[in-house]
Design a protein around this nucleic acid. Structure first.
Lengths: 173, 173
DNA sequence: CCCTCACATGTTAGTGACTAACATTGGCGG
DNA sequence: CCGCCAATGTTAGTCACTAACATGTGAGGG
């Protein structure tokens, strides 16, 4: 599949024509299944779950803390869905600027979802956007790092460690 | 110039050919001056300054706090360089996913510079990357928000407010 | 059993960002 | 005045992605 081609020749050096040929379809058909070349590797089905999870945290918390706890709470269900190729995909994404950009573009939607929930909870929009973007950046950084970690390191572990850095001093997790 | 075209027709709808024609040059020549279309709007001359500023903060601080203070310290010199078109550029960047992606790609270099300084100070690489990405995300969010703020709101003000959210509880700035 | 409708796929042709190889100009020191 | 270097132009190509239209194939109803 496409993943193999990317790993062999690099993401940029692999053309959509090659992927399509390897899959026995036309380039046209490829674009009917995936809106962009990078969509083969980068997907983002968790937005609603995460937004819910953030909204479920106590409104009294400061925005960063609310988002942080929301992400940690969502983490269980998400990392359970880690399939076998997840790490390979992530490792690949980490190697290409274009792919990293695609990931960030994807998280923009997650960020927007979180911001909406925070704003309806009375949080000023700027503060909400800052809290969401900072926490998601930390999470994304952990995700990308995970790709080059040894097999036995879990994603949840890294994300937890990342988000702990944004916790109020003295209180871990 | 290109900025006017972008504002009139939108970034995506403005082709490099049009920009080149408006400037009285060939598309080819355009690409000799700017590596990409987005480079007209997105530039990043501050990396070394910021990295220095981060390194100048006490090593004893937690990584996030060190980066945070470093960014705040660098803020003075940077926002002094705000020229007249800065706000227009930022407002434009905020409107286009492709341009926001370009900004993020640009910050990756800044992040890398910061991480190097933190790592040589004894900070684990993951923690350094997380701290840098979170603080830079907060800063970038403030920057983008600035584009749609009223004239009298300064960039420094917004960035300060953004970074204050990542400060240890109870201590502002 | 055939017909038809719908949907997945193919075909062709184009646009726009970017690149490489090579030609051309223009000013400036010798 | 000559040659040299740098900036610019020319041509032709690659690759991601799109639009308009054609084809084929399978499922369901007559």
């Amino acid at each position: 599949m496409a993943l193999d081609l990317f790993e062999r020749h690099g993401y940029a050096a692999t053309t959509v024509d090659q992927i399509a040929a390897a899959a026995g379809i036309t380039p046209m058909t490829f674009f009917r299944h995936f809106p962009t070349k990078d969509a083969v590797l980068v997907t983002d089905p968790y937005d609603p779950l995460i937004a819910e999870s953030v909204a479920a945290q106590p409104e009294a918390l400061r925005p960063v803390e609310r988002v942080r706890r929301g992400l940690l709470a969502a983490l269980g269900e998400i990392s359970a869905a880690e399939d076998a190729t997840a790490r390979r995909r992530v490792a690949l994404v980490a190697t290409s600027p274009a792919l990293r950009a695609a990931v960030v573009a994807g998280t923009e939607e997650t960020q927007a979802a979180i911001v909406e929930r925070l704003v309806t909870g009375g949080c000023p929009r700027l503060d909400a956007a800052v809290a969401a973007s900072a926490c998601l950046a930390a999470t994304t950084t952990a995700l990308l790092a995970w790709g080059s970690e040894p097999e036995d390191v879990t994603l949840a572990e890294l994300v937890r460690r990342a988000l702990d850095q944004l916790a109020p001093v003295g209180s871990a997790s």
